[in-house]
Design a protein around this nucleic acid. Structure first.
Lengths: 151, 151
DNA sequence: CTCGGTGCAAAGCCTTTGCATATGC
DNA sequence: GCATATGCAAAGGCTTTGCACCGAG
């Protein structure tokens, strides 16, 4: 974990930004809750536990900054709230998501899966792909089991 | 076009909703601008041209309704505005988008492309896919040409 | 007459911004 | 000391809601 903080610190310094205590606290929360897809408000509340004096605006500004530096990805599942997701170390692509329409759970898929499709897009549409967002909506394994039991 | 209006009328009636003049005007705008990705405000302004008395709230309510009935898809390209896109007739899947980060243009891809990937998701993750959202971010053909010229 | 639909304005959210203060180099 | 970063509160932008009125069956 310290290693990753260090890396981020360097990334910030490279653009002459500072890793202030508030920013570090925010990054730590993101690291601890890497599997989740926290909203700005979620992050704020969690950071507040360790650094009660932090303001919501700072969290927004920090998340915006991290987003610009491609350290986190800003995603939107259509519920009107932005969520922030730490990029996997060394990942060139954004990972995909499985959103369950029954229980709202979000699963991550790290595998690329889109290599062939991207090649097609480049070749057939002449569109130079830089990044992508792929989300599947459906019913997760758990809810399928539930359904089978209840029915 | 009248044919499609009729179909939508039936879909509404089937759920005991009415195709009021306001709703019809809204649907007509969506049909006329099928290639675009209009925001609620865009739709509102266009509808207002033919039916000046309409209110923005009604447009929102209509779009919400059409969205629930799966007649339109609500999408979000991350700019904080919802956009509304008519489903292609008989389409079971949402189509994909190529968003150019240079000029902001949005191209549509009707081809499925994800059959194999969806099969994998079902088989390997046990997730029953109902729908998907796929957006590529990158540089469109036009902007690539521009770049080549300017450089 | 009844109930869904509409228009308007007000309220609600999430997010951004202005500004004075505090902090790090 | 100076520029950057922060906190707070206010402002902003998009969307939803409350409420009285309207209109079709």
């Amino acid at each position: 974990m310290e290693h990753r903080i260090d890396r981020i610190k360097k990334q910030l310094h490279a653009q002459s930004y500072k890793l202030t205590p508030q920013r570090e606290a925010t990054v730590r929360v993101l690291l601890e809750r890497e599997e989740d897809h926290l909203s700005a408000e979620d992050v704020y509340l969690l950071v507040k536990e360790k650094a009660p004096e932090i303001g919501l605006a700072t969290v927004y500004r920090t998340l915006e900054l991290l987003s610009e530096l491609k350290i986190v990805d800003k995603i939107n599942f259509g519920d009107g709230v932005s969520r922030y997701d730490l990029r996997k170390e060394g990942a060139t692509h954004f990972h995909h998501h499985l959103v369950c329409t029954e229980c709202g759970s979000v699963e991550e898929i790290v595998e690329d899966l889109l290599e062939d499709v991207e090649k097609l897009i480049q070749d057939d549409w002449g569109f130079k792909v830089k990044d992508h967002r792929l989300t599947f909506h459906g019913i997760c394994r758990q809810c399928q089991i539930q359904e089978a039991v209840t029915t």
